[in-house]
Amino acid sequence: MDKLQAMQIFRSVVDEGGFAAAARALNMSPAGVTRYMSDLESDVGARLLQRTTRKMSLTEAGEAYLDRVRHILDDVEDARAVVQAHTQEVAGVLRIVTSPLLATHLLAPVVAGFRQLHPRVTFDVSVEVMGPRSTAVNDCDIKLLTAPTDFNANLIARPIITTVGVLCASPQYLQDRPPLLRPEDLKAHDCMAFRHPERRAGNIQLTNPDQDGVTVEINLQPSFQVNHLDTILRATLDGAGISSQPLNLVAQYLNDGRLVRVLSPWSSGQLTLYAALPSRKFLPTRTQAFVEYLTERTRNSVHSALARAAEQREAAERKGR
Rank of each mutant, 00 (worst) to 15 (best):
P246H: 05
E41F: 00
P183E: 06
Q8D: 09
Q50C: 06
R47V: 11
Y274T: 08
R200D: 15
G202C: 07
T52F: 01
V216Y: 00
I232M: 11
Q175L: 15
V90A: 06
R286H: 06
S126I: 11
K187H: 10
R258E: 14
S42E: 15
D39C: 04
T163D: 07
L167S: 05
P109A: 10
E292W: 00
D124Y: 04
I9C: 02
R54P: 08
T135D: 07
P209L: 08
L254D: 09
H86P: 01
R133F: 13
E311W: 03
V110Q: 11
D230F: 08
D15Y: 08
F10M: 03
R200P: 12
V69P: 02
H189N: 09
Q312W: 04
D75V: 14
V260F: 03
V129M: 13
L101A: 12
G239K: 03
F123R: 01
F114Y: 04
L206S: 08
L294C: 03
R95Y: 08
K319R: 10
A305R: 01
V44D: 01
R177V: 09
A309V: 10
D139Q: 11
L249M: 14
A81N: 06
A251D: 07
I161P: 04
A276H: 07
N255F: 04
V14Q: 00
A79S: 11
P197R: 03
N227V: 07
Q211H: 12
N300W: 01
T53H: 10
A240Y: 13
V216N: 03
V137G: 06
D2V: 04
V226N: 08
L145C: 02
Q5D: 12
Y173G: 10
D212L: 08
L117E: 15
V291Y: 00
L107H: 05
L259I: 13
S304L: 13
N208F: 06
T295W: 00
L107R: 02
R299Q: 14
I96V: 15
N203Q: 14
Q88M: 12
L167D: 06
S38I: 09
V97N: 03
A153T: 09
D230Q: 14
L237C: 10
R261T: 12
S170G: 05
E60Q: 06
L277C: 07
A136K: 13
G320V: 14
R177F: 06
S279L: 00
A23E: 07
R261C: 11
T207C: 13
Q175I: 15
H189E: 11
A289L: 04
Y173M: 08
R80K: 12
E311Q: 13
L220F: 01
F194S: 00
V291E: 02
E77M: 09
G269H: 05
P183L: 05
A315T: 07
M1L: 04
F290H: 05
R120A: 15
A20H: 14
V125Y: 06
G17F: 00
A316S: 08
D39L: 12
Q252H: 12
Q175T: 15
R182Q: 14
H196T: 08
N203H: 13
N203W: 12
E311K: 10
F151S: 10
D67I: 12
A85K: 02
V125L: 09
D190N: 12
G213Y: 08
P222M: 07
R195K: 09
K3M: 11
E296L: 13
V129D: 15
